[in-house]
């Protein structure tokens, strides 16, 4: 009973935290874009516009919901949920901190600890493409369909690189358990970014493609496809797509911090209390989240053929070579032992 309560509490806290971060990201996106373009950004709702996401959410709830004619109603309604769900599920395996002792109980700070956390995470991120494709297809609109098509092609291409780069890290740590991967990089010198710089760069770039973010946001490329896969969506379903996108960004940022920057470990302070660890993870993930926005307002969008060429002819061979080299090094060093 007590274990169940703890589990529920963890789910509620982590889920609420992620949705809050996603909401704040929608504000941050507009704020950062404004600052980079000499503007103020939203600043009317609450101090510095901090309540803007809340106001937006309310507005979305009260908007009319439209289903286009000839659409597949079931899939049309289901697709946004399918888009948002995998991203939220993924958060379950990411260790947001060490262990807390509350009332004599040791509580690990992650929703669950499963041995194959990395695999679970990858399979969930593989599912996130369904919401986009099915939404695009069920809308019965050519722009939506093209957006969905592009998304599927892009996500399949880049998922390979993503998996291969993560595999290199897994090879180094020798475990699919995210907690073990964190435990292996407690000190700054042990961070995987120093051992896997190429994988880190590839992972960071692939992150953008996986979340359909600029400069790889062909699925919703405005000048060509109106809104892409969500052209026909309105109201909360539209908002759900964006919630999913921001959640995916949050999760991938946390993952990048976990895999390459030591997760909740605090640099130069191994004995830090748990809340400093959580803050440390948030700060590391925050950097990646900021990177998403920063790149969006800096770089122009690629062409689709460039995207595919980059994915298949550059990133995939590089990731394979990196994995091969890592495997060779690990095999030789372990063989010597």
């Amino acid at each position: 009973m007590e274990a169940l309560l703890i589990a529920v509490a963890k789910v509620v806290v982590i889920f609420a935290g992620m949705v809050t971060i996603a909401g704040l990201m929608s504000l941050a996106e507009r704020k950062v874009s404004a600052w980079m373009q000499y503007r103020h950004g939203p600043n009317r709702v609450g101090p510095f516009g901090i309540l803007q996401p809340l106001a937006d959410g309310l507005k979305f709830i009260f908007k009319e919901e439209l289903v286009p004619e000839g659409a597949n109603r079931l899939m049309f309604r289901l697709a946004p949920a399918l888009a948002a769900m995998p991203a939220m599920l993924t958060m379950a395996v990411i260790p947001v901190g060490g262990t807390v002792v509350i009332a004599g109980r040791e509580i690990p700070l992650s929703m669950t600890d499963i041995d194959i956390g990395v695999l679970f995470l990858l399979s969930m991120s593989g599912l996130s493409v369904y919401g986009v494709i099915l939404g695009g297809w069920a809308s019965n609109s050519k722009y939506s369909l093209l957006g969905g098509l592009r998304a599927s092609a892009q996500m399949i291409s880049y998922e390979l690189t993503l998996i291969l780069t993560i595999l290199a890290v897994v090879l180094l740590s020798g475990s699919l358990d995210l907690r073990a991967i964190v435990a292996a990089q407690q000190h700054v010198g042990q961070w995987n970014i120093w051992y896997q710089p190429l994988a880190f760069v590839l992972f960071t770039i692939t992150m953008f493609a996986e979340t359909n973010r600029h400069p790889f946001d062909f699925a919703e490329c405005e000048p060509e496809l109106v809104g892409g896969f969500h052209t026909e969506y309105s109201s909360m379903r539209f908002a759900l797509y964006f919630l999913g996108e921001y959640c995916a960004m949050t999760v991938l940022s946390c993952l990048a911090a976990t895999l390459f920057l030591g997760g909740p470990s605090v640099p130069f302070w191994p004995a830090a209390p748990w809340y400093v660890g959580v803050l440390s993870l948030l700060a590391k993930a925050g950097f990646f989240l900021y990177l998403f926005l920063w790149v969006r307002w800096t770089l122009p969008r690629l062409r689709f053929d460039q995207l595919m060429r980059l994915g298949w002819k550059v990133f995939l061979p590089l990731a394979l070579l990196n994995l091969l080299a890592t495997g060779a090094v690990v095999a030789f060093t372990h063989g010597a032992q």
């Binding site: 404004a34 600052w35 373009q37 000499y38 503007r39 600043n43 790149v295 307002w297 800096t298 770089l299």
Partner: peptide, 24 residues
């Protein structure tokens, strides 16, 4: 391409701290 990306990023980062031109 990556060095150029970093160059672009540094420009936008610097611009972030400049005074807004718009009027409230």
């Amino acid at each position: 391409y990556l060095p150029e990306v970093v160059r672009g990023l540094s420009i936008t980062f610097r611009k972030m701290f400049e005074k807004p031109m718009t009027r409230q």
